[in-house]
Nucleic acid binder design. Structure first.
Lengths: 159, 159
DNA sequence: ATAAAACCTCAACATTAGTTGAGGTCAATA
DNA sequence: TATTGACCTCAACTAATGTTGAGGTTTTAT
């Protein structure tokens, strides 16, 4: 008969513990709770008590934020799932797949921008209507236009 | 002797014209001016009059913003240059090269995140301290660690 | 000359993502 | 038990990036 140490019995974490382990400030955890991203039980004395699964949830939030997804959207994605039960591996798979796609799109658009930037460095055409950098959505339509001379047009001449 | 049309004589643009041509709102141009990103001359009646070169400047601002650079930094970069004279091709080359590098870094970091996401989809390890997604700055240090089993650790067990 | 459209300033508001502080309560330790 | 550190709520503040509106003036077109 071994005595179970109380630190192992305590299944719930205080807000300070969650802050330390997850690396986000206590005030941020309050904030996330107010926004419905996480939730807590309360002790008799009204202090927050978190199941350990909150750590995964916070980790998911942080990853999603790094991909550039706003909190409101993260919240929406998370609350599709019952907010009481811990995230399962399947939940995480679904979320990460969807975010993976968004991330790919962001990367693709930044790469397109970078390529335009590469080809436009020094060309001086930037304020001309034909410049590919001015037409972010014409990623495909620019092929075949060829480089423009830096002729002053009506728009940008500085004679 | 041809008569020069007044629309061609008018070398300066009103704020409304700049807004229309550049695609940013009048209020935004006011805002940019307040922040020192652009400047204007005034008419006798105190209305803004812009040299055509402001269009290039606004275009540069918009490109920089798309790369994720905050206005304050754009402003700093732009005001290194004398703010009265129009941007030259050399100015633009210098700016775009520096932004090109920052853009590359952002892309690289998003790609690293994406790769982690790819390898972690479904693995469920997210809240474990060893998960590569939790260690954004260990992009290199993770090699050799090998995939972790999904054993519950002290941190994340949900027994 | 007059009316409409465009412009002016300045202040307040909006949104996202939090942080800070005041005033008061709870819990763990000496 | 006393005290100290952690916690509570609520409101106000920050910072970035603008937008909206009120009240008044200038420009342009008829």
């Amino acid at each position: 008969m071994t005595i179970v140490r109380s630190s192992e019995m305590r299944r719930e974490l205080t807000v300070g513990e969650v802050a330390e382990r997850s690396g986000v400030a206590v005030s941020t955890l309050h904030f996330y709770e107010a926004k419905g991203l996480i939730s807590s039980n309360r002790s008799r004395g009204n202090q927050r008590r978190y199941p350990r699964s909150v750590l995964r949830r916070v980790a998911v939030i942080k990853v999603a934020q790094r991909t550039g997804i706003p909190l409101a959207e993260i919240q929406a994605a998370l609350t599709v799932l019952p907010d009481d039960r811990p995230l399962t591996v399947q939940d995480w798979a679904r979320l990460s797949e969807s975010w993976h796609e968004q991330l790919n799109e962001r990367i693709a658009s930044l790469m397109a921008l970078r390529d335009h930037l590469t080809s436009c460095i020094g060309c001086g055409c930037l304020s001309l209507r034909e410049c590919p950098l001015r037409n972010p959505h014409d990623v495909l339509s620019m092929e075949g236009a060829g480089p423009r001379l830096m002729d002053a047009t009506e728009e940008d001449g500085q004679p």
